[in-house]
Simulated scan of single mutants.
Amino acid sequence: MSMQPHEIAEVLSRPYSQELLARDVTRLAYVATDGTPRCVPIAFAWSGTELVLCTSKNAPKLPALRAHPTVALTIDTEVHPPKILLIRGEVELDEVDAKLIDFETTLPTAVEELVREREARQNA
């Protein structure tokens, strides 16, 4: 049974749905390239209209999702009785470049270059 867009919007606008959409982790179910089912936890963000999931460019799930974009997501709580939001649909894959800059483990590219130059001078 397929839901109409207005029905989906109504479910997603409910307070419990909004609470679950504000969480950090969902469980992504998809079909792997070998044809077997997979279910993996993955971080997500709710944009207000889309769930955005991020992964590395070499993640094994990407070839599987390109071949079979139909997925299911579960966002739930760990308490009893649980609150559970079940979502099914198709993924759209967008490859984007991104970099985390936290000034502890990663730095802006220009700063990284200065650090490399300084290390090269010190090692010369």
Results as ranks from 00 to 15, higher is better:
M1T: 09
S2F: 05
S2D: 14
Q4S: 14
P5Y: 11
P5D: 10
P5F: 06
E7G: 02
A9K: 03
E10L: 07
V11F: 00
L12Q: 02
S13R: 04
R14M: 13
P15F: 09
P15L: 08
P15C: 12
Y16P: 08
S17H: 09
L20K: 03
L20F: 07
L21R: 02
T26V: 12
T26C: 15
R27D: 02
L28H: 00
A29C: 06
Y30E: 04
Y30T: 05
V31G: 08
V31F: 01
V31H: 03
A32I: 00
T33H: 01
T33M: 13
D34A: 08
G35Y: 03
P37S: 09
R38F: 03
R38Q: 14
C39P: 03
C39Q: 13
V40W: 02
I42K: 05
I42L: 13
F44S: 02
F44V: 08
F44I: 01
W46Y: 15
G48Y: 04
E50A: 14
L51H: 07
L51N: 07
L51E: 07
V52P: 00
L53C: 07
C54P: 00
C54H: 12
C54R: 15
C54S: 15
T55A: 13
S56V: 06
K57R: 14
K57M: 08
K57P: 10
N58A: 14
N58S: 14
N58K: 11
A59P: 00
P60G: 05
P60S: 11
P60A: 05
K61C: 11
K61R: 14
P63N: 04
A64V: 12
L65G: 06
A67T: 09
A67I: 04
A67S: 12
P69F: 02
T70C: 06
V71T: 03
A72Y: 00
L73N: 04
D76P: 06
T77S: 10
T77G: 10
E78F: 03
V79Y: 08
H80W: 12
P81V: 06
P81I: 09
I84G: 10
L85G: 00
L86A: 06
I87L: 15
I87H: 05
R88S: 13
G89R: 06
G89A: 06
E90L: 07
V91M: 11
V91G: 02
E92R: 06
L93S: 00
D94G: 00
E95M: 05
D97K: 13
A98M: 10
A98R: 11
L100S: 01
L100I: 14
I101W: 04
I101R: 07
F103Q: 00
E104F: 09
E104N: 08
T105P: 03
T105N: 03
T105Y: 08
T105C: 09
T106K: 07
T106G: 04
L107N: 11
L107G: 06
L107H: 12
T109Y: 11
T109F: 03
A110K: 08
V111K: 04
V111M: 09
V111Q: 10
E112Q: 07
E113G: 04
L114I: 01
E117S: 10
E119Y: 11
E119F: 14
A120I: 12
R121M: 14
Q122K: 11
N123G: 12
N123I: 11
N123F: 10
N123E: 13
